[in-house]
C-alpha cells in the first residue's frame, strides 16, 4: 500500500498515505512551482523571447519547461555515487529508487546528466544552451513558427560561436550539444507518459 512520487523536484519520494490525493498533489506543486517560475524568469531574459506572441511564449514554456529543468538540475544526478538528491536535500541511491518503481527514465536521466556534465561547460555556455533547449521545444500549437525558428537559429549561431571561441580544439562539443536536443525530447516524452500514468486516488 505504499506510494512513491519519485521526482527529484519533490522534497522526498515518500508519499504520506494519510493525505488526500489533492493534498499530495498540492504539496508536490509547492515544490515544482518555484522551479517553473525560475524557468519563466530565465526565458524572459533570453534576447528576443519577449518579442514572440504571448501565446507562443506560453506554448514554448509549456512544451519546454521539463527539458530546461532536466538541464538545470542535471547535477542532482550524481553518476559517480549513483545517487539522486531530492529538493529536500536527501540523497537516494539508484537501488532505493528502483525499489520504489522507477526504471527506464531514471537510467536515461543518469545517462543524459553524465554526458552533459562531461562536456564541462561554463555557466555562460550552459545558459545559452538552455536558451536553445527552450526555443527548440515542441512546435505544435505555435502561432508563428517562423519567428520561433528565426530565434532558434540566432541562438544556435551564438552558441556555436561561443563554443568555438572557448574550445578551439574541441569542435565536437557543439555537435554533441545539438545532439542533446533529441535526447531531451525523448526524456520529455517518457516523463509525460509516466505523469499521465500517475494517479493519486
Amino acid at each position: 500500500n505504499r506510494l512513491y512520487l519519485v521526482c527529484p523536484m519533490n522534497i522526498s519520494p515518500h508519499v504520506n498515505l494519510h493525505k488526500t490525493g489533492h493534498e499530495v498533489w498540492e504539496e508536490f506543486s509547492h515544490c515544482f512551482t518555484p522551479a517553473v517560475r525560475e524557468v519563466v524568469e530565465f526565458a524572459k531574459k533570453i534576447p528576443g523571447f519577449r518579442d514572440l506572441s504571448q501565446h507562443d511564449q506560453v506554448s514554448l514554456l509549456k512544451a519546454g519547461t521539463f527539458e530546461v529543468l532536466v538541464v538545470r538540475f542535471a547535477s542532482l544526478f550524481n553518476v559517480k555515487d549513483r545517487t539522486v538528491t531530492f529538493l529536500g536535500g536527501n540523497k537516494y541511491s539508484v537501488e532505493t529508487l528502483k525499489a520504489m518503481g522507477s526504471g527506464y527514465l531514471l537510467n536515461a536521466m543518469f545517462d543524459f546528466s553524465e554526458k552533459l556534465m562531461n562536456l564541462g561547460l561554463s555557466e555562460e555556455e550552459m545558459s545559452l544552451f538552455t536558451a536553445v533547449v527552450l526555443v527548440s521545444a515542441d512546435r505544435s500549437g505555435l502561432e508563428n513558427v517562423n519567428s520561433v525558428e528565426a530565434l532558434q537559429e540566432t541562438l544556435i549561431r551564438a552558441l556555436r560561436s561561443l563554443i568555438t571561441r572557448n574550445h578551439p580544439n574541441e569542435s565536437a562539443i557543439f555537435t554533441k550539444l545539438l545532439l542533446k536536443l533529441p535526447d531531451l525530447r525523448s526524456l520529455n516524452n517518457v516523463h509525460s507518459e509516466q505523469l499521465l500514468a500517475f494517479k493519486v486516488h
Partner: peptide, 27 residues
C-alpha cells in the same frame, strides 16, 4: 487529464509568472 502540462497546472503557473502577477510574487 490528457495533457501532462495541464495535469501539473503548468499553463497557469507560466501565465502568472509571465505577467509578473504581483500576488504570486508575494507568495
Amino acid at each position: 487529464f490528457s495533457d501532462p502540462a495541464s495535469n501539473l497546472g503548468l499553463e497557469d503557473i507560466i501565465r502568472k509568472a509571465l505577467m509578473g502577477n504581483l500576488e504570486e510574487r508575494q507568495d
